[in-house]
Design a binder for these strands. Structure first.
Ligand code: SF4
Ligand code: SF4
Lengths: 150, 150
DNA sequence: CCAATCAGGACCGCTTAGGTCCACTATCGG
DNA sequence: CCGATAGTGGACCTAAGCGGTCCTGATTGG
């Protein structure tokens, strides 16, 4: 349906959330803040850490913090970190994943379309998505960060 | 993986192929021309006919022909005809398919990103994809159209 | 009347994404 | 030095969507 995976969506949400609290935050904390099951958000954070989008601190009082300011992170980076490379069809970038490639009249012709999407996504930063958002005061207070046990 | 479905890809291929032979062509003929199983391409053609992208003629000597010149067909139209609407996440267009929508800091903020992709895809016509293609003479002759049984 | 061809839908198998869990390691605080 | 805390990496399982096939009508030309 030309939709990106839910994990990618969660990654963006987690990053934006992580910038709101610019201090170190644990994955259970983030999970509670954005209303996503903890193991899932943990997996997302792991992948993000592997690509340098977040910095991880181990041990007690560890957690995650942003590896880069939000306006330096493009949407396409998050997508590629979680979802893998952006490839509309099997024949982009000269990849040979299509068996009817030899007699396909549009073989390799998806590349411009693919690049159009890539550039469109790389021009939008997470800060853009956050900036256009409704003012923070308007949002629900949700759960206060790590105040009490349930 | 942010890839479009294979059926959508086949739809574009079929449309381009259909414009090469501007006469009426049957679905088995198209299937043989582009090297795709016949039932599959038939299903694609049906969907395209339902959206007016191709005109169908029933009965003997029937078949499909383009409903519009190629340069009037945007890539986004084909995608929407086969793959459904372009919706990166569950919360675009105000849809409420996400249960964490109430406490999501970026709820509804995917819309600009979504629209960017939509406009990028609607600005590219199938003629653009065909035009940039390698000259037809360079392509393999593949199967001569309906010459002989196997 | 017959053959060809599209229309529409039911159906099924496979892939893959989504989600969960566990054992391990590193770090901090006492 | 020890134990609690928190990330790391991987295996694993389930569910849903997609790709693909087939069958039964409806329609039109010969
Ligand atoms: S455009 Fe042609 S070659 Fe490329 S993936 Fe689609 S069918 Fe295969
Ligand atoms: S952006 Fe937020 S509300 Fe929208 S689909 Fe993702 S998690 Fe749900």
């Amino acid at each position: 349906m030309l939709k990106l995976s839910r994990l990618t969506d969660y990654a963006v949400v987690a990053l934006v959330r992580l910038s709101a609290a610019d201090c170190v935050e644990t994955s259970p904390g983030i999970a509670a803040a954005i209303g996503v099951p903890e193991p899932t958000v943990a997996k997302v954070l792991k992948a993000l850490a592997g690509h340098g989008l977040v910095i991880s601190s181990r041990g007690a009082r560890g957690g995650y913090r942003l590896g880069r300011p939000l306006n330096e992170i493009a949407v396409s980076e998050v997508i590629m970190a979680i979802d893998g490379p952006i490839a509309l069809t099997s024949c982009v970038d000269g990849a040979s994943g299509c068996e009817s490639q030899s007699l396909c009249p549009v073989a390799g012709r998806w590349d411009p379309v693919n690049d159009a999407i890539r550039s469109a996504l790389s021009r939008i930063s997470l800060a853009d998505m956050e900036a256009a958002s409704i003012p923070t005061a308007f949002r629900l207070p949700v759960v206060a960060p790590m105040n009490e046990v349930v």
